[in-house]
Design a protein around this nucleic acid. Sequence first.
DNA 1: CAAAACTTAAACCAATTAGTCTAGGTTGTA
DNA 2: TACAACCTAGACTAATTGGTTTAAGTTTTG
Lengths: 196, 196
Amino acid sequence: MSRGPNKKFEPEVALGKAMEVFWLRGYEAASLTELLQNMGISRKSMYDTFGNKQSLFLKALEQYAQTRLRSIREQLLASGSALNNIEQLLKSMQKTHGKPGSTGCMLGTCTADFNTSDVEIAPVLRSYYNRLENIYYEAISQAQTEGELNPQASPRDLARMLLCTTQGMALVGRVLDSETIPQSVVKMTIEALKKS
Amino acid sequence: MSRGPNKKFEPEVALGKAMEVFWLRGYEAASLTELLQNMGISRKSMYDTFGNKQSLFLKALEQYAQTRLRSIREQLLASGSALNNIEQLLKSMQKTHGKPGSTGCMLGTCTADFNTSDVEIAPVLRSYYNRLENIYYEAISQAQTEGELNPQASPRDLARMLLCTTQGMALVGRVLDSETIPQSVVKMTIEALKKS
DNA sequence: CAAAACTTAAACCAATTAGTCTAGGTTGTA
DNA sequence: TACAACCTAGACTAATTGGTTTAAGTTTTG
């Protein structure tokens, strides 16, 4: 057994704080100084624990994605009708991204933030989008088997539409000061699903 | 009349080159060095002509938006059916954003790049989104009066859906290496319009 | 108690940033 | 021809960046 005390700060908590800064500012614009201030730890501890800025970011992005994907999956797999769960999810997104000062989705922000040819980050983002698409796919399929959606429609196509529409809403919402656009988008998206 | 030669370089051409760099890299990551190299002018000329980096960026963004908006408007107002023009526009976007190495829409990239509370840039982006929404609105209205779309549907809602869906497709396309997602999105969007 | 594991604060480094300024060259016109 | 307008190249500044290292202090445990 090793001697001495264990880590005093909670790496996961500090990582969460770092995530908030990256989410708000983006990778480049998030300075070490601001990151450390929010994380509440010293420079040394950060480098000892997380390696460097890029790997800190990748860990923060991973935590964001897992938290977000789990939350969405839970909302979609809640008891009751699958279609209703999709509607409720979209409504909650409408509210979130319609708020002034909303920061959108961290995946989307990073998708814009990084050079498209960045071989380090692009595959990570692509994989998260795939997982998100698959979550939508499952929910739509379930709504179909429950008889709530047209069984002839392609759940794969619908899931992809849902993916891009919500990402677009989250992105545009960053500069909006009213809920009108998200309202329209969610309304039309739900109609599109039902009429598919 | 003033003496001496007029400007040797074309400010609009140089601005276009700057725009390309900003588009590819984003505001922060676009260094003066890279900008000047692409613009093909000296540091001094840039500061004399454009002021500083931020105003260079704002001018580049304005040029991008005007070029882009005009192009979209032209495609939508082309001769023939309004609905068909919308379809053709979406198909061209599908192709563009499905290409590996696609850089998305500069408006979207900047929307993610800047701090949401940036009072300088947020209103500019918001205004561009409004203009884009209005262009879609006109096209949809025309398709309705031409009897190609359900006249009961709200062209405002549909225009907003189109806005967010295309922005999302452009954004996600930055990390994609195949056309499958844009294909699905465009297919579903056209269906949604027709069934609205 | 003493050593190990952990912590912070701050000094430090090399590189890069946006922006300014100067010196010298070219070009066109009064 | 002489001067004004424009140009480039590059030196320079002041600040900031990510990252490293050092020194000193704290806590736990063998």
